[in-house]
Design a protein around this nucleic acid. Structure first.
Lengths: 241, 241
DNA sequence: TGACTTTCTGACGATCCGTCAAAAAATGGC
DNA sequence: GCCATTTTTTGACGGATCGTCAGAAAGTCA
């Protein structure tokens, strides 16, 4: 029931997000100018402000959109066929795909959260972003919980599924951030951020004693299968594999 | 051999950094206004620009200063008396102290690096920041290397000291970032960011098989000792222990 | 004390955000 | 197809901040 005009407006919002996302990646937030975004799709600045209440809000909208995409990737990984630990590996593969496909996201989300929640950002937008993060944690939590239930993941005193998920998330976020460091440090471990992340995630899960350990099984094969079965298109686009 | 005037200028630079750091923490970078920084110490804007070439440069200077402090804390931990793994624990304690004492730093460093290195930042400032990071990695690398040499840390095929250091760094950075999330998610593991970081670091090093494992030795005591011997003043100020 | 150097100042040009009244386009009844 | 009404778009404008620079003030030293 969308009139032609309403459809045009909808499409334009996506277009605006595309433009803003690209500018964010190429020039950074400081150089994300509202007039340029408007000009890039042939409208005036006022029209942009009809979609996004402020520059910060536009940034948040970009972050919210890619965060939702990430959550969707994570949820696709949830249905992977395999042992709990293999399925967690599929989640890691999802994170890697996202890592490669949306390089702007880290900067965007960090700015949104770091801006100490500028009141110029729509609350709804923040809620979406937050919900997406929780969806990601939800997937990881579910898989780890199943690992505990199946006896593969023997948590010790004081350890919890949440702690494990936070740790993986931290490793992943840290690797995301380290991409910036590549420009400054030349070290194989820093250079190959994704490979290092994979290895470190395995070490981390081994540390929990999550069976089968990476010394018992080669998880590379499972990762390849996850990329092929779940993320064929995305992995192709990202140049993984 | 500093004239009174030169001394005054030196002192003023520290004062400016103090003010900027506080404003950064309280209001965020968007609200760090050059006139307000100037006014806060009773000089005009032009004078501020005599110290820092631009607003971005002021931000970078704040980040560089705290990064140097972090490097110093790390290097203090290097001389801790104990097994290699206990000494790495002292480094983690240093990171925790810094974490608690300089909450502004993560935001600052992230902005500096994320701004795609605005040409308005003095190259020297960036070099200082980078050098401090490398000093931190240097300490961690040295300790891990000693662990390998002593036989406590048995690296497997494809693993490296650099990979281990990157992993710890990522965990640490990720935890730093997660502080922002605390406002949104209510979960014990998220809430107690430092405690979770400690536990996860132990799991991670256990995953490498770095002896003695945390299941064999209680590293809490070593951590307490490190805080007392190395960072008594800082831990007190940070409210740790 | 006075000539010279260094430092400081704040008004100014330039830039960008976000607004809003007026213009343009779309809608819908006839 | 026409026109009244509603929705949408426009771009000039006010306000705010950055960084500059010529002139004023303060400092230095013989």
């Amino acid at each position: 029931m969308l009139s032609p005009k309403q459809q045009e407006i909808r499409d334009r919002e996506e277009l605006l997000l595309d433009v803003a996302q690209r500018m964010l990646l190429e020039r950074g937030f400081e150089d994300l100018r509202m007039d340029r975004v408007a000009e890039a799709i042939g409208v005036s600045k006022g029209t942009v402000y009809q979609h996004f209440g402020s520059r910060d809000d536009l940034l948040a909208a970009v972050a919210a959109r890619s965060a939702a995409t990430r959550a969707a990737l994570f949820e696709r990984a949830r249905d992977f066929a395999g042992s709990p630990r293999e399925r967690m590996g599929a989640v890691e593969a999802a994170a890697e795909v996202f890592f490669a496909l949306f390089p702007h996201h880290e900067q965007a989300e960090r700015l949104v959260r770091g801006a100490h929640l500028s009141p110029r950002i729509s609350a709804e937008r923040v809620a979406t972003l937050e919900k997406s993060t929780q969806r990601c944690f939800g997937v990881a939590t579910q898989i780890a919980t199943e690992g505990v239930a199946s006896g593969d993941l023997p948590l010790r005193e004081g350890q919890s599924v949440a702690q494990l998920c936070v740790g993986l998330w931290n490793l992943y976020q840290g690797a995301f951030l380290m991409r910036d460091l590549e420009k400054f440090m030349s070290d194989p471990a820093v250079d190959d951020a994704i490979g290092t992340l994979q290895r470190n995630a395995r070490v981390f899960l081994d540390g929990f004693g999550w069976r089968p350990l990476s010394t018992e099984v080669d998880y590379t094969a499972a990762r390849e299968r996850a990329l092929a079965e779940l993320f064929a298109v995305e992995a192709e686009a990202a140049g993984l594999r």
